[in-house]
């Protein structure tokens, strides 16, 4: 009914955090967590992955809701808002399906960040080949 709104709201918040983080990183010259030997992925770049997934999911799901006639271009924009019973059902769906969607994307992003950190820490394929 309006489950995409939860991911959309998270996308707005994460985008704001990402922009602030990017500005902070641009002010401070690039510095690694430890020595210059260990490459580090900027946190703003990782946040960008999350924002793109959230925006992508929210926009494409919003399109699906338009397709099914659940979102209209006129007030109140959501057909479920016209009837209190439907509104309650919509809020219930947002709290279950919507929150689960946003949570899954966030969990996948956390896993992506862990894997990405592990990938940049291991030797490059050419170097690994030379060490054999």
């Amino acid at each position: 009914m309006a489950c995409f709104l939860v991911s959309g709201a998270e996308a707005v918040i994460v985008t704001a955090i990402e922009k602030a983080q990017e500005a902070k990183e641009n002010k401070v010259p690039a510095q690694g967590e430890g020595s210059s030997d260990t490459p580090v992925i900027p946190f703003s770049r990782k946040l960008k992955w999350l924002t793109w997934m959230l925006w992508g999911g929210a926009v494409l799901l919003a399109f699906e809701h338009v397709w099914h006639g659940e979102v209209t271009p006129w007030f109140p924009f959501l057909t479920a808002m016209a009837d209190p019973a439907d509104t309650a059902e919509m809020l219930g769906e947002m709290a279950t399906v919507g929150v689960s969607m946003a949570a899954l994307i966030t969990v996948v992003w956390v896993v992506m960040c862990i894997v990405a950190n592990a990938i940049v820490k291991r030797p490059a394929p050419e170097a690994a080949e030379e060490n054999k």
Binding site: C3, W52, G56, A58, V97
Partner: peptide, 21 residues
């Protein structure tokens, strides 16, 4: 192409949750 990748995976994950429900 990264944009496209994230758009599709984001939507896929959300539809996966929808499918589970």
């Amino acid at each position: 192409l990264g944009t496209l990748v994230f758009l599709y995976w984001g939507a896929s994950l959300m539809w996966l949750v929808d499918a589970v429900f």
